[in-house]
C-alpha cells in the first residue's frame, strides 16, 4: 500500500457514485437508453445492471420526452430518479418536461411536492462528432429557476457531485463532458460528497482569474501553465456547479487579481461567460483593472471538419494569447 490515492477515470467515478448511492438508497431508479446490460454508451452505468437488475435500471427505447417525464413523475411519488439523456443534445426532445414540469412543481406546490430527479447528459464536442452531438447548452438550465446545475470537470468531482445530486429534493441537471469520461484522477474509495455552490480553486495566481467549467477547466489549467513560463500567474476557478454559483470565490479571486477571463465551450451570447462577467462588474467593479474577456466557442454550429471545429472552439493557444493581451493593458 502506498499513500498515493487510487486513480480512476471520470466515467468510473460516476459509476462508483451510482453504485454507492443505489446501494444506500433502495428508492433510486435509473432510466435511460442503453444503460442496462450495455452499461451505457459512455460506460457510465457499467456493471450496475448486474447488481441492481431490470427493476431499477430501466432501459428504454428512444423516447426522451417519455423517459424524462416518467423519471420526474417517479420522483414525485417517493422514488429518487435518474434519467440519462446520454447525449445532452437529446434532452431537447424532453425540454418541456424539464422546464415546465420538473423545474416548477416544487415551488408551485408551495414546497409540498419534492422532485428528487437527476437529469444526466454529456455535453460538448468530442472527436468531431458534429453539430448535433456537440452542444454545450448547460447554461440554459442555470437560467431556469428551480434547477440546480452541476458540471463536473474531474473524476473526484464527478463522484462527489453525483452523490450530492442524488440527495437533493429538487431537480439537478448533472452535465458531464463527453471528452472527460476517460480522463483519470485521484478519487477516494467510499463515502465523500462535494457540496453544491462551492467552487474549486484549481490553481492559484495573482495576475488574472480564469473561470471555466467542464472540460474547459483542463484547457484553462494548461493555458495557466504556459502563462506561468511567461511570468503570468493565472488563478483558475472551477465553479463546479453553475447553479447555485459560488459568487464569493469568484469575487474574492478578482479582488486579488484585478482581471477576469471566462473560458467557455458554449458561445458567448447570453451565456455563462456573460453571467460571470456581469457578477463581477456589478459586485466587484472596483476590483477590475482591465476589461474582462470571454474566450468562447464562435457563434456557429460545431462544424465537422477538425480544421474548422478547432478554429471554432476555445484552445490553449487562444486562452494564452488573450490573457497575455489583457496583461499588456
Amino acid at each position: 500500500m502506498t499513500n498515493k490515492q487510487r486513480e480512476i477515470t471520470y466515467g468510473e467515478a460516476g459509476v462508483e457514485a451510482l453504485r454507492e448511492e443505489m446501494g444506500r438508497d433502495p428508492s433510486i431508479v435509473y432510466i435511460g437508453q442503453g444503460i442496462g446490460p450495455r452499461g451505457g454508451n459512455f460506460r457510465q452505468t457499467r456493471g450496475l445492471w448486474k447488481e441492481f437488475g431490470d427493476g431499477r435500471l430501466r432501459d428504454t427505447g428512444i423516447c426522451e420526452l417519455g423517459e424524462t417525464g416518467l423519471a420526474i413523475g417517479a420522483a414525485m411519488n417517493g422514488c429518487r430518479a435518474i434519467v440519462d439523456e446520454v447525449f445532452l443534445d437529446f434532452i431537447l426532445e424532453a425540454m418541456t418536461q424539464v422546464i415546465q414540469q420538473a423545474a416548477t412543481i416544487h415551488y408551485l406546490s408551495n414546497g409540498k411536492i419534492k422532485v428528487p430527479v437527476v437529469i444526466r447528459g454529456a455535453m460538448g464536442s468530442v472527436r468531431n462528432a458534429g453539430a448535433q452531438h456537440a452542444h454545450s447548452f448547460y447554461a440554459w438550465f442555470a437560467h431556469t429557476p428551480g434547477l440546480k446545475v452541476a458540471v463536473p470537470s474531474t473524476p473526484y468531482d464527478c463522484k462527489g457531485l453525483l452523490k450530492t445530486a442524488l440527495r437533493q429534493d429538487t431537480p439537478v441537471m448533472f452535465i458531464e463532458h463527453k471528452g472527460l469520461y476517460n480522463s483519470k484522477g485521484e478519487v477516494p474509495e467510499g463515502e465523500f460528497l462535494v457540496p453544491f455552490g462551492k467552487a474549486s480553486v484549481r490553481r492559484e495566481g495573482s495576475d488574472v482569474t480564469i473561470v471555466a467549467v467542464g472540460r474547459m477547466v483542463q484547457l484553462a489549467s494548461e493555458a495557466a501553465s504556459a502563462l506561468q513560463d511567461e511570468g503570468i500567474a493565472a488563478e483558475v476557478i472551477d465553479p463546479r456547479t453553475v447553479a447555485p454559483l459560488d459568487r464569493d470565490t469568484i469575487l474574492r479571486s478578482v479582488a486579488k487579481t484585478g482581471r477576469l477571463a471566462v473560458v467557455d465551450e458554449a458561445p458567448a451570447a447570453c451565456g455563462f461567460s456573460g453571467e460571470v462577467i456581469a457578477l463581477v462588474s456589478t459586485h466587484g467593479f472596483d476590483s477590475l483593472d482591465a476589461p474582462p474577456r470571454r474566450i468562447c466557442s464562435l457563434h456557429v454550429p460545431n462544424p465537422f471538419s477538425p480544421a474548422l471545429e478547432n478554429e471554432m472552439m476555445p484552445s490553449v493557444t487562444k486562452v494564452v494569447s488573450e490573457v497575455r493581451e489583457m496583461l499588456r493593458g
Binding site: G66, L70, G73, A74
Partner: peptide, 13 residues
C-alpha cells in the same frame, strides 16, 4: 408522463 412515472414509483415501491 408524470402520471406514468408515479405509477412506476408505485410499482417499484
Amino acid at each position: 408522463p408524470l402520471a406514468a412515472g408515479s405509477a412506476l414509483a408505485a410499482q417499484l415501491r
